[in-house]
């Protein structure tokens, strides 16, 4: 008989090893055994994804593996969510709108952040690079975003993040969205200075900060 502790351990392993068959099997066995599926999702599969994120940050696994793990996660999440009567796991999800600011065409880092956010169940609306503040706000309203994330690689484009904060305040929308900023020249101090809600040092940190924003 499968017990929750073993299921959690195996779920983590399946995610870290990108093993879809094993992950799906564990999910189905857990449903049949009547285990706590929310716990399995959060402490097993989601924890596995956090391990993957950490390994990625240390250069121990790479983007393709990260993506594969995310795909496995997506599959088991679908299976488990169908079976979960309680909606508690779903409540954690949020919509995040993400963009590289106007004047800046760098999007490698943003792409990694998008991949990692998806692994954590966020619905990510990536509106690309070189995006003006007006369009970011317009789209955030349209998709009813919970969080707006902006990336800037250049010191010259960093000010666009400040412009976004100012524009949100000017339009009376500041309390409607949480904001997170990132990118090479961006720092915690910059985030505080412009009034952003969070700063992501790297992709893994950005995900952790987004999850924390949801708790606020």
């Amino acid at each position: 008989m499968l017990i929750i502790e073993d299921a959690i351990k195996e779920a983590q392993e399946a995610i870290v090893k990108c093993d879809e068959n094993k992950a799906v099997a564990i999910a189905k066995q857990a449903i049949d055994a009547g285990l706590d599926l929310v716990k399995l999702l959060n402490d097993g599969f989601s924890a596995g994804i956090r391990i993957v994120g950490d390994k990625f940050g240390r250069g121990e696994i790479f983007l393709p593996e990260l993506i594969l793990s995310a795909e496995v996660m997506k599959k088991v999440t679908e299976i488990l969510e169908t079976a979960i009567v309680s909606d508690s796991a779903k409540e954690k999800k949020a919509v995040i709108l993400i963009a590289t600011v106007e004047g800046d065409v760098h999007d490698i880092g943003k792409g990694i952040v998008v991949s990692l956010l998806k692994t954590q169940g966020f619905e990510v609306v990536d509106i690309g690079r070189d995006v003006p503040v007006d369009k970011i706000i317009e789209k955030a309203i349209e998709v009813n975003a919970d969080i707006i994330g902006t990336s800037a690689l250049l010191t010259t484009t960093l000010v666009e993040q400040q412009k976004l904060e100012e524009e949100l305040r000017a339009r009376g929308l500041r309390d409607r969205f949480k904001t997170i900023v990132g990118g090479a020249p961006c720092t915690e101090r910059w985030a505080k200075k412009i009034g952003a809600d969070a700063y992501g040092e790297d992709a893994s940190d950005a995900v952790v900060k987004c999850l924390k924003l949801l708790e606020k």
Binding site: R58, G59, E60, I61, F62, L63, P64, E65, I108
Partner: peptide, 21 residues
């Protein structure tokens, strides 16, 4: 400080490049 594995399987003379410090 480490080589980002965007591909993940590329090697140079038998050494996998992704993740090298």
């Amino acid at each position: 400080e480490f080589v980002l594995g965007m591909h993940g399987q590329l090697e140079y003379d038998g050494t996998r490049l992704a993740g090298l410090y």
